[in-house]
Amino acid sequence: MGSITLNKVSKVFGEAKVIPSIDLEINDGEFVVFVGPSGCGKSTLLRLIAGLEDVSGGKIMIDGKDVTQAAPAARGLAMVFQSYALYPHMSVRKNIAFPLKMARMEQSAIDRKVEAAAKVLNLTDYLERRPSQLSGGQRQRVAIGRAIVREPSAFLFDEPLSNLDAALRGTMRLEISDLHNQLKTTMIYVTHDQVEAMTMADKIVVLNRGNIEQVGSPLELYRSPRNLFVAGFIGSPRMNFVDGAYAQSKNAKTAGIRPEHLGLSKDNGTWRGIVKVAEHLGADTFLHLDVDGIGPITARCDGEFGAYHGDTVYMTPDESKLHRFDEKGLAIKG
């Protein structure tokens, strides 16, 4: 079991209201990602759930039990930290065994569990090493091992992949998703990287300035962002925002069109632009264009399209994929 409910949770540091008031429901077994720019309060929210910070107001319930005042260890949660927070003076074995030792488990049971976890995480050969003798990815796995042996009701991940290089990040992303599929335990994952959020989450919580902007599945957020912030944050490359005459013609303050929803042609189209930079990724090409009367626009096209710096390219927005926003930046339905 591992359902978590936040009820009007708020956090104030001195004068600064880091989190004004948040309501959130996390179901058992869900993989929930908190995503947002740095300073949006996502890590703070995670630490409030963990019990590493006191809430300033509101209630936190785990499996229907009020844990607002409970000590971190009493909440039955496990956390994987950004720096991994491994104990440098202990071997991998002792690191993973530490929470069990604290729970006064029998030594033989501890050994069994540690070995099992090590096997799952491919750490069996490294059990006697110190953290300093491990690579970044291995350290990460030790930190995860230390979390899973406790069999917590939920895992908390605080930007766990941000210290890894790009290739390893991709691998670890898969491993964590895989782990979630195996354990089916609730996981709350904090990141500033929308790619991680999109690829891993069952449910994404987009945070901005301590407020929840939108909650939904990755595709819901992609298809129908509730406001400008979510629209701009989810999706890569970023959605193009167009103000002025074009938007007005669509009865909106701002029109949004994703780079992949622009039809490209070398002959004719709604907009005409000059290619400033063409990023050839192979399968895809990202074109950064300067469009007459509109300004910079990013378009995504097939790798074989063949456009280069200085070329003229015509674009036609796919009207069915157009996003419209009002003066307040909220999406206009329908």
Binding site: A73, F81, S83, A85, L86, Y87, F98, A103, R150
Partner: peptide, 23 residues
């Protein structure tokens, strides 16, 4: 973060001092 990890792992203040901080 290491101290926080210890607390998440269920170490009380005394255990935190003996097993994590002192070493």
């Amino acid at each position: 973060e290491i101290l926080e990890a210890a607390r998440m792992d269920g170490a009380g203040l005394w255990q935190e001092i003996v097993y994590v901080l002192t070493p």
